[in-house]
Simulated assay, not measured.
Amino acid sequence: MSDNTSRPQRAAEPRRPRSADIGRLGEDLAAEHVQSLGWTVIERNWRNRFGELDLIAADGSALVVVEVKTRASRIFDDPAAAVTPLKLARMRRLIRHWLADHRDSWWSEIRFDVLSVQLDSRDPTAVDRAVVRHHRGVFA
């Protein structure tokens, strides 16, 4: 015997974004931020066997390598706190590799910035509530 009574349907809860989705959203917001400053995005997600550079941009004649740190939780400090001395050393090596691959370009300055993106913990996809902090010249 089958039960033909219908059960009330629950409203589907919105799917929580995966970590990769949150990272991609943060990188998109970071690219928009640097473009709003008048910078030109040269490359995104450049990779080699040693790692990845999130965002490479030109600020006039300065080359700016941007590390993007995104969080959807407020439990931890500013996402930029995740850029440790070990991470900085890795970034220096990656920047040298990028420059070696782009010998035809000339830059008056090379700078490393960190953009921290704090998403709304209740709705990480609400980009209008995201907070972007720009840490310039973490090392030059």
Rank of each mutant, 00 (worst) to 15 (best):
V117T: 11
K87P: 00
R96K: 12
A130G: 05
R74P: 00
R71E: 10
A81R: 10
K87Y: 03
Q118W: 01
A72I: 01
A130W: 02
T84V: 10
H97A: 13
R103S: 09
D113N: 11
K69A: 04
V68P: 02
R96W: 03
E109A: 13
V131Q: 14
R74Y: 01
I75Y: 02
V131E: 15
L119D: 13
I95G: 07
D77R: 10
R122V: 09
E67S: 13
S108P: 02
A72Y: 01
V127P: 00
E67R: 04
K69H: 02
T125D: 08
S108T: 15
R74A: 07
T125F: 01
I110S: 05
L94H: 07
D104F: 01
V114K: 05
A130D: 07
E67M: 04
S73C: 05
R129C: 03
R92P: 00
D104Y: 01
L119R: 10
P79L: 08
P79D: 12
D101S: 14
A80Y: 01
A89P: 00
T84I: 08
R71Y: 00
E67V: 04
S73D: 15
S121P: 15
H102Q: 11
E109G: 07
V117E: 10
V66R: 05
P85G: 08
R103H: 05
T84E: 08
A82L: 12
P124G: 10
